[in-house]
Amino acid sequence: MSPILTAILVLGITGLVLGIVLFVIARKFKVEEDPRVGQIAELLPGANCGGCGFPGCSAFAEACVKRDSMEGVKCSVCKSEVMQQIAAITGHAVEAGVEKIAVVRCSGSCENRPRLRAYDGAGSCAVAAMMNGGTTGCFFGCLGCGDCVSACKFDAIHMNPETGLPEVDQEKCTACGACAKACPRGIIELRNRNKLDRRVYVSCVNRDKGPVAKKACNAACIGCGKCVKACPFEAITLENNLAYIDFEKCRLCRKCVDECPQHTIMAVNFPPKRVQAEQAEVQETTESNTSQEQ
């Protein structure tokens, strides 16, 4: 037999045998997967951010199919149309979710909150937080090491080098909650995205008594309670020297914003106020607010 023939025979037989082995194994160990899992997984963003509480997007897709209802199964990143599509695949109704956004509740920029010391340890807020006190007089505010930035899978939060504070990109933020979880001081909160992304919130988490807080930071909530009195909707509570606006109750009237002596309450994405004289009557302000509300 010529060597060429031998080679062809050997290779051919090897190929055949291996092919049969592959076929048998593929048959025997075939995994039956619900085709809907794959369909759903394709709709999902695939960032595996974990905002839904499942280990990743495929686990979420599996949960969508396996569960009897969609209660508690919601991708915080997907738009509601996508959730509707998923619902159409699974046949369960989804609750109309409210879109949210991450909000940084600290205004302790370098200007407002002088840096008294220099932090010299490992570059992580979690490590810095273990020293309790930080580089400023405020023991509650942003540490500025950027754990939230590294936690974000969507490139939606960045440190502003001028203020030393993180800023959320409202276009990119998907409200997965990774930054809120990463922040050792609980500064970041997920709040409702209202109409036109308008938000009113207390941009401070300092629970120290008024004078201590004020000494530490020019923009700290001093717990004076003026906003609580000003709110017509009982949306503001004062606890541990700190005001908090309940975003479910807030109707965005912005009365508290004007009342706050420390300018701690932030109103975002509202059109610039009409030019008003400093001594404008309170009546007028109220009117303009009501008109905006409608």
Partner: peptide, 12 residues
């Protein structure tokens, strides 16, 4: 390297 900083975090 700030080894102990990280180890302390892990311990915590």
């Amino acid at each position: 390297r700030p080894l102990l900083d990280w180890v302390r975090l892990g311990k915590n």
